[in-house]
């Protein structure tokens, strides 16, 4: 899909209305031919960012591959809410094996397809942050270093939501989870922990790494489309708010995801073979507090005496902005 070059904003959103665009530039979701790979009727919660991200990502991958796609799913919310036996929301060949092996199962499928002369069929692996950054990390790194022909999609909602909101290595500092309680001197998840898997993916020098968000679905579609045009190991890390785990209004999923980007807490970028190739500039910078305030998991940051903690979160956002160059040159001061 060709990306638009003209800047074309609608108020309050990053996406231009499809009717203003040339047919070829319209979103996959706007197309009558979209596959609805993750069909309606599944049991995701209201306002689920993961369901939204998966629908856009998989439909875009389907279009990019001419509907020749197989998906592997790690154990987790997406797996559970999409396949309550004997029903399945998946309109594509789909397999769930274990929590920690989605990347390896996908590697095996890719190898089998090559040996069976079905190179045109492509493979996607997908999982939540727990299945990706923690328990599935070994298999993910193995898939990366072998440069297996797999696109791995991580839907990052920053904790183990399926088991009841426990901390993962993607949980941000200060966030309250069931295992990082908002009590004591340093309430919530401690500072100085966690890992940045997109950067670790880049360190494998794989052909493509990107971050994406459900706040910018056209960008997500474009990144998936770009990834499917490449061969080898590819990784897209998608920020997906979880109303249940974050204690946020289901109606605000998109806004919260956007504030994560606009505050600098979730940088959007792309990388090829270990080098940053693009970043999405922040359009209207906001303080981290604007993002945090909408989520009950950060409620303790807005009580008396929590100013230092809040400042440390803001410092993380500031560092991201500097590190990834997230301010457009004209607006950088």
């Amino acid at each position: 899909m060709i990306q638009q070059t003209i800047k074309f904003y609608q108020t309050g959103t990053f996406t231009v209305g499809n009717r203003l665009l040339d047919e070829s530039q319209r979103s996959v979701q706007a197309n009558m031919e979209r596959t609805n790979s993750l069909n309606s009727g599944h049991r995701a919660c209201q306002g689920c960012g993961e369901a939204l991200g998966a629908r856009y990502a998989i439909d875009a991958a389907m279009r990019a591959t001419g509907n020749r796609l197989i998906a592997v799913n790690a154990t987790g919310c997406l797996e559970v809410f999409s396949t309550p036996y004997p029903e399945s929301s998946w309109q594509i060949p789909w397999i769930h094996s274990l929590f920690g092996n989605a990347a390896a199962v996908a590697s095996g499928i890719a190898a089998a397809l090559r040996m069976r002369g079905q190179d045109d069929v492509r493979v996607i692996a997908q999982g939540g942050d727990g299945g990706t950054t923690d328990i599935g990390f070994g298999c993910l790194s193995g898939m990366f270093e072998r440069n297996d022909d797999v696109l791995y999609l991580c839907y990052d909602n920053e904790a183990y939501m399926n088991t009841g909101v426990q901390r993962s290595s993607a949980t941000p500092p200060t966030a309250r989870t069931a295992t990082t309680m908002a009590v004591g001197d340093e309430p919530g998840n401690p500072f100085g922990t966690g890992k940045n898997v997109p950067l670790i993916a880049m360190a494998h020098h794989i052909p493509y790494v990107a971050t994406a968000t459900v706040a910018n679905l056209r960008d997500l579609e474009a990144k998936v489309t770009k990834a499917m045009a490449l061969r080898g190991a590819r990784y897209i890390h998608i920020h997906v708010p979880c109303p249940l785990g974050w204690g946020s209004d289901p109606a605000l999923t998109i806004r919260i995801a956007r504030l994560a980007v606009e505050s600098g807490l979730f940088p959007l970028f792309e990388a090829a073979h270990g080098e940053l190739t693009s970043r999405t500039f922040i359009r209207r910078r906001v303080p981290a507090a604007e993002y945090l305030r909408l989520q009950k998991r950060f409620a303790h940051l807005f009580t008396a005496g929590a100013e230092a903690q809040l400042a440390r979160v803001q410092a993380i956002a500031d560092r991201n902005i500097e590190r990834f160059g997230l301010l457009a040159p004209e607006s950088a001061s």
Binding site: L98, A104, V105, A111, G138, G142
Partner: peptide, 20 residues
């Protein structure tokens, strides 16, 4: 060449499910 036995059998699971 995989990175662990867990991966070895997981790759095998994928390959077998894809008909190899």
């Amino acid at each position: 060449n995989v990175e662990s036995e867990f991966a070895a059998l997981s790759v095998a699971i994928g390959a077998s499910a894809a008909g190899a």
